[in-house]
């Protein structure tokens, strides 16, 4: 419960929201979909700036080089969008695996990233798609790789009065395939393991590899050792098995009462291998 909450602000534009946050005298936080904020126990927050009604933060756009998604876009809109291509399909798949229709109507593209819970599904997909995040502080903006935001934790990465406004994902060339998978006790439950991968194949060899996991770890991580192992090699069963083994060996597994560490590691290795297989199969199409 937000015990001390007394005030809501409803800015109409990003600039209004940022100046509200920058000039706040009371302890102020942002809210969009509100699913995590509503369940949060915090007795310091006195005011909330509601981003959910800012129209310029809710959109899905795509052209031949990239897809842009407004930070306050409900993930249900991504799931039901007509986005296509490797990036579009991956975003749709990942968004569709979040909770339920009722939750997806609230949870937003930016909130799922900024709240950065272990069970958030989109961050791993953003990571393998080399997404960039547009952060705005009123008019001024900076565009940063999503991995920078994740690795330095959004709360400390963003400065006072700055918000995540947009997520940009590049469109990939032919010969690229991507895959997203999630394991949870039920489809509505928190993820136990989230795996995303993207592979580009050129001349029969892996030219570029991205692999990221979440939920089994405390925050989304790229499995860079495994990526390095894959690049430049011919994708065969042995290589993928070795990469999966290497990826799991490098993980710092989070405690979860739902399943033991041993079990989740074993499942994760299989999921990673299958994810790579799927990405490679799609890359060949």
């Amino acid at each position: 419960m937000l015990k001390k909450l007394t005030q809501f602000y409803y800015p109409k534009t990003v600039e209004d929201a940022c100046s509200q946050l920058a000039n706040a005298k009371e302890k102020t936080s942002v809210i969009a979909g509100g699913t995590s904020e509503a369940l949060r126990n915090d007795s310091t927050i006195e005011a909330l700036v509601d981003l959910s009604k800012i129209k310029e933060l809710s959109f899905i756009k795509s052209d031949s080089s990239s897809i842009s998604i407004g930070a306050a876009t409900p993930v249900q809109d991504i799931y039901k969008s007509d986005l296509s291509g490797v990036s579009g399909e991956l975003l749709k798949t990942a968004a569709g695996k979040i909770g339920s229709t009722l939750l997806r109507n609230a949870i937003t593209a930016g909130g799922n990233l900024v709240a950065l819970f272990p069970w958030s599904d989109l961050p791993a997909a953003y990571m393998v798609l080399d997404a960039e995040v547009v952060c705005r502080k009123g008019k001024p903006k900076r565009t940063v790789p999503v991995i920078n935001l994740i690795n330095s934790k959004p709360a400390s990465f963003l400065t006072k009065g700055e918000i995540v406004a947009e997520i940009k994902v590049p469109v990939f060339k032919k010969g690229t395939g991507a895959s997203f998978a999630k394991m949870s006790k039920t489809s509505n439950d928190y993820s136990l393991i989230t795996v995303a991968s993207r592979i580009t194949i050129a001349g029969g060899k892996i030219e570029e590899a991205r692999l990221a996991v979440n939920a089994i770890t405390a925050q989304p991580v790229r499995c860079e050792e495994a990526e390095k192992l894959l690049v430049g090699k011919k994708p065969d069963a042995e290589l993928l098995a070795e990469a999966a083994k290497k990826a799991v060996a490098g993980l710092k597994v989070r405690k979860d009462y739902r399943a033991t560490e041993e079990y989740r590691k074993e499942v994760c290795e299989v999921m990673i291998r299958r994810s790579l297989e799927e990405s490679i199969a799609k890359a060949g199409k």
Partner: peptide, 24 residues
């Protein structure tokens, strides 16, 4: 937000009313 018994339509979108602050 798991069971949906509290679902209401808010501006045309069905959502769980148990995990949305009234102020929103």
């Amino acid at each position: 937000g798991s069971c949906g018994a509290c679902a209401v339509m808010i501006d045309g979108r069905p959502k769980n009313s148990c995990i949305i602050l009234a102020g929103q």
